[in-house]
């Protein structure tokens, strides 16, 4: 398969190229070819909730046009992303925001977690003797309910243990809240709206929710969230690592059977 990696520009612009590195590595280990999508395209839903709904349709059309060109030029089979927003906007399977608005990408889009889950039988992992704190991105977990998939993949990694990010025991069982309902956001989107505030929010989320759990790594399914956690770790001077979901997977993935 030839896979277009989406979110390339965003990752580089935010100073988290390691997301791209791990995505590239995973794709290669799985025996696929990759093409980075270096354009500024983000999901056209985000521009709407940033206050520019007037650009949503034009942006969606422009995105489709660019994707059609690239798909035919590079013979792309799939678009893959570590970010939740483009998946939430464009996934046909999940009836994404823009799909409902009548737009369609020329090939399917997957989030790295759903992609790995769909290939779970084939994946070969080595042991990872560590315990991580699993953070569900707000869009992916709370909004889209994509929470089992990333966990099932983690469960396949020998020796790896994960604990959920929040303290579900603090909530009332009658409300039937899931860990992904209550997962606290480290404020990744603030980078687009009030960047000065992001490190404070992220470091406090780490301090309040992650440090008491006695794990050495936070792993998040949200690309923006990783960016925020990374800034929060630095800001707080904490002795804890942050990882984007594909970074952790890449550490364990050996290849496919």
């Amino acid at each position: 398969m030839r896979i277009m990696l989406h979110g390339w520009d965003t990752s580089h612009r935010m100073g988290v190229p390691e997301i791209c590195d791990s995505m590239t590595s995973i794709v290669k280990k799985m025996g696929h070819e990759y093409v980075p999508n270096e354009s500024k395209v983000i999901c056209a839903e985000a521009i709407g909730f940033l206050g520019y709904d007037n650009l949503t349709d034009d942006f969606a059309k422009a995105t489709v046009k660019e994707m059609e060109e690239k798909v035919s030029k590079y013979d792309i089979d799939l678009i893959l992303t570590a970010y939740a927003a483009p998946y939430a906007a464009w996934s046909k399977e999940r009836e994404g925001f823009l799909v409902k608005r009548g737009y369609e990408l020329p090939v399917p889009i997957e989030h790295i977690a759903t992609f790995l889950y769909k290939n779970l039988d084939k994946l070969k992992f080595k042991e990872l003797d560590m315990t991580v704190l699993m953070h569900d991105g707000c869009t992916l977990g709370r909004k889209m309910r994509v929470a089992d998939e990333p966990r099932k993949v983690l469960e396949k990694i020998p020796k790896l243990k994960y604990v959920n990010f929040d303290h579900p025991e603090l909530y009332v069982k009658e409300r039937d809240l899931k860990p992904w309902d209550i997962s606290a956001c480290p404020g990744g989107w603030l980078d687009f709206t009030l960047p000065e505030l992001m490190p404070y929010v992220a470091s406090n989320v780490i301090r309040e929710y992650a440090l008491p759990r006695e794990v050495d790594t936070i792993v998040t399914t949200c690309g923006n969230g990783y960016h925020a956690f990374k800034a929060g770790v630095k800001h707080g001077g904490f002795d804890i690592k942050a990882m984007a979901y594909p970074m952790l997977i890449d550490m364990a993935l050996e290849g496919v059977q």
Binding site: K40, V41, I42, L50, G51, D53, L55, K65, E66, F192
Partner: peptide, 29 residues
């Protein structure tokens, strides 16, 4: 936020981001 945009009340950091998106749209046209 959309109502604020209609009145011209958008923070600069967001305006700049939207300008980049508009540029992309123009290029595609």
């Amino acid at each position: 936020r959309n109502d604020a945009r209609k009145q011209g009340y958008i923070p600069k950091v967001v305006r700049d981001f939207a300008a980049e998106v508009e540029e992309f749209i123009k290029e595609q046209k």
